[in-house]
Nucleic acid binder design. Sequence first.
DNA 1: CTGAAAGCGCTTACAG
DNA 2: CTGAAAGCGCTTACAG
Lengths: 349, 349
Amino acid sequence: MERSSTSGGTASLPTILDVARLAGVSKSTVSNVLRATGRVSAGTRTQVLAAIDELGYRPNVLARNLVRRRTSTLGLLVGDLANPFYSELAKLVEQRASAAGYTTMIANTDGRPDFERARVETLLEHRVAGILVLQLTGGRATVTDVLARAVPLVVLTCPEEEGADSVSVDDAEGVHAATVHLLGLGHRRIAYLTSDLIEVGSDRLRREGYLRGLREADIESSSDLIRPVSQLEAPDGAIAEAVVGLVGLCNRPTAIICANDLIAVDVLDTLEGLGLAVPADVSVVGFDDIALASLRRISLTTVSQPREELARLAVELALDRIELGFDGPPRRVHLAPTLVVRSSTGPPR
Amino acid sequence: MERSSTSGGTASLPTILDVARLAGVSKSTVSNVLRATGRVSAGTRTQVLAAIDELGYRPNVLARNLVRRRTSTLGLLVGDLANPFYSELAKLVEQRASAAGYTTMIANTDGRPDFERARVETLLEHRVAGILVLQLTGGRATVTDVLARAVPLVVLTCPEEEGADSVSVDDAEGVHAATVHLLGLGHRRIAYLTSDLIEVGSDRLRREGYLRGLREADIESSSDLIRPVSQLEAPDGAIAEAVVGLVGLCNRPTAIICANDLIAVDVLDTLEGLGLAVPADVSVVGFDDIALASLRRISLTTVSQPREELARLAVELALDRIELGFDGPPRRVHLAPTLVVRSSTGPPR
DNA sequence: CTGAAAGCGCTTACAG
DNA sequence: CTGAAAGCGCTTACAG
């Protein structure tokens, strides 16, 4: 027999059965008014609603999802929520998800592949309807593999991911535009500064944009001027060290293109500490256009990503597969970046 | 009869029953190895593990939670994830939660009470084991009421919340210290600038700290110098407008205490636009000490909150009630803030 | 150490 | 329009 759920534990919440009994109907009927199927008479409906209200009944989504065999929660994997670019994106994604009736389960990976694996495992155990990834951090093949089999995966911000839908800005194009901008100002020695906190694929493309820009201007690239640093190992000093290295070169670069804004801001700070003027001594360019970049005191020239569009499209691609049952091959959406010129760039001395 | 779950839908995932059959044991036994109860022989265990591996079986947490009648997910309500203070805190909370075996469901309220209500409702329907709130936005009484009855609630950063555990910094003390610092530098006309994006209780306390500071120095407070602006209504221009108003006063303030860093940064920007020097013309103080504040170009004097401690304690308080069954009255943890003096403050001209 | 049975709180055909 | 029954995929006593 079905027993009263209130006879059990201490603080048992009312169940659909409690509502049914109070309203003098069956569980099915309560379920029907809950799901607004329309096949309930107005009178019955009123009684049920009254019972729900009186009991303070709140449906148990776990039970519902178990029988429906799908949830309405999206997993959101993010590399570093402390990076404003990602937190802004996370906010927009949550907003879109929520508007579509989905909750979002968030997981920070700290850029660590082992964390990423564990978090993905947890998300899958929770049967999330889809997973959105802001920055995939290593272990890409395995992760993509795990995901592709089980649930829709859309990769945001990381281009060229095999097997998964992706939406990102044209990274190469963005940095190419930045390089052309610097060349136009008269720069000839331009450095590229990146770190292991940047997603590998994005970094590769951005670097390509940089190299192509130089090539088109018949400037030979120099390995001296390409500096990848490890922020995972040395979170604090890595960027500063690289900057010191660059400006210490006998043939010092007059401009530095940074793989993202956070690095660029760090570079500005370091240059200031070294007594070098921006842009007079060194021009600096970033990537992302986080809120910070537009402050007068920062005023960073940077490649802007259309965050709203990125978030909207990512959620859409996921819902296509989840709700519309789209089952086609991976889709790649590329958005155009925009170079925003501010006062961190200028002609070389 | 128990039917094969693979006979049903298209992409049914393997269930515990599939594993049991493949391993030639009962569901109970599989469950026992899964939960590492220890009452399974080594041989059986190996077989089960092999079956799990072969099937790529992943337990369905929904089913587990349904029968256990509790989940291991924490709800995280945040006012604005785009505010670095909150995203940094969110990251730390997720980190702590994850370390304790909890997933975190995030919900951004945009500072809108109606959103907050809806999100809380959803979290409760998902039977989250507890809810952590970073900034409660209006509708506090109702929300607290809803929560208190159903699930442990800990309020982070908002002091004096009735009925809920809370952990926050001593807001009044922080701003008092800032005020004393400014007075020590010789300032006599000090303004206080706040907005409706700041949690109401925090704002009240911070304001009190400011007023007490003035009172102790026998300086009369002036309503001219206390400016609450509405960023909800005018997200962009509100701060600038207030600053223009302040510096346009015939008896212009020589220092501005801002209710948080985001406002302070906006103030710095506006002053710069007006051609006023900081700190020579106007000193500026913030609250939070977000990453941005320590940049050389910003170098904001601010009241620092111990984020790590806040996050750690908040999760601990929640787990006390969730896991240890602590059922005592609401606990209020107050942490000491630290005034970090940088170069946005100095003696008045 | 292992298994059969009941039940978590819902939804979903299926009768009536 | 309404209800009885089966089942979603687990865990949890309880026997043996």
